[in-house]
Simulated assay, not measured.
Amino acid sequence: MKVVILAGGFGTRLSEETQNLPKPLVNIGERPIIWHIMKTYAAAGLDDFVICCGYKAHMLKSYFVNYFSENYDIKVHLGENRVEFLGGPSERWTVTLVDTGLDTMTGGRIKRIASHVGNEAFCLTYGDGLANVDIKALIAFHRSHGRLVTVTSVPSPGRFGILDIDEQQNVTRFHEKPDNEMGWINGGFFVVEPAAINYIRDDQTSWEREPLEKLARDGALAAFPHRGFWHPMDTLRDQRELEALWKSGAAPWRCW
């Protein structure tokens, strides 16, 4: 099963970092966040990746083209015009990088890589979020229900206080959102059947809008509930929180 990673957005809410590089290449520790995501899938036995590039696509391509020279010891034989990589690589990934357009929406990016996934189900996620999702259990769940798409559902963040407001716009109560009122949101980490791509109209289609909404109406969308660790990297604060977890030596998403 292939893994498709959406990595083409501008990352405007993390502009402190993304002025100079695409968000998937923003480091957590000494490695880009996309590396952490790929390691999560690889730990489940999935090592064939399709990366949907867009903003600063050349930098993502360069990262993987130069992966061995930047991450492993090398011996350069100048007289023989040959480079020798020392030691066996821990990553044995196949990585297909596709420039899916600068302004293409998420759905359009998926539609553009349809030929790279063929006629088999594939995993799909965003290039800016980490989780300790059980990938094998997610795939098994998808195979068990027969629907076109499975989305990993996560509890909505409970960091916002709730205001109870009367008709005169007076706040009658301020309270934190209890766990049983949190609801569920899209956490990424999808499993998708190729037929679901037919729900995407064109480049300007957002995967999270018309396609998922219609899939839900058609009874073709299932949710895999995940109550464990999940953390998007939308802002500099998010990046610093993930960085601190990694440096602590107890990053919840590390399963390799």
Rank of each mutant, 00 (worst) to 15 (best):
Val4Glu: 05
Tyr72Met: 13
Asp103Pro: 10
Asp203Gly: 04
Leu21Asn: 01
Ser115Val: 07
Glu16Pro: 02
Gly129Ser: 15
Gly54Cys: 07
Glu91Lys: 07
Ala250Val: 09
Thr125Pro: 10
Ile197Arg: 05
Phe68Tyr: 15
Asp48His: 06
Gln169Met: 14
Ile135His: 13
Glu91Pro: 02
Gly127His: 04
Arg209Thr: 06
Asn27Phe: 08
Ala222Phe: 01
Gly187Trp: 00
Trp35Val: 07
Pro32Trp: 03
Pro24His: 06
Leu245Trp: 01
Leu6Lys: 13
Tyr72Asn: 03
Arg13Glu: 14
Asp166Val: 13
Met59His: 07
Leu221Ala: 02
Asp103Glu: 12
Ala216Thr: 12
Gly158Pro: 07
Cys53Pro: 03
Thr94Trp: 00
Phe174Gln: 13
Asp218Met: 10
Ala114Thr: 09
Ala7Tyr: 04
Trp184Pro: 02
Val65Cys: 08
Trp35Thr: 06
Ala57Trp: 06
Ile197Asp: 08
His58Gln: 14
Cys255Lys: 01
Asn20Leu: 14
Glu208Cys: 02
Gly146Gln: 04
Lys56Asp: 15
Asn119Ala: 15
Gly9Arg: 06
Lys136Asn: 08
Glu167Asp: 09
His175Phe: 15
His116Cys: 11
Arg13Phe: 10
Asn132His: 09
Asp238Gln: 05
Lys247His: 15
Leu124Ala: 06
Pro155Lys: 10
Ala250Cys: 02
Gln204Val: 00
Glu80Gln: 06
His226Glu: 12
Glu70Val: 13
Thr104Ala: 11
Arg159Phe: 11
Glu70Ala: 15
Gly183Gln: 07
Ala220Thr: 10
Lys2Ala: 06
Glu210Trp: 02
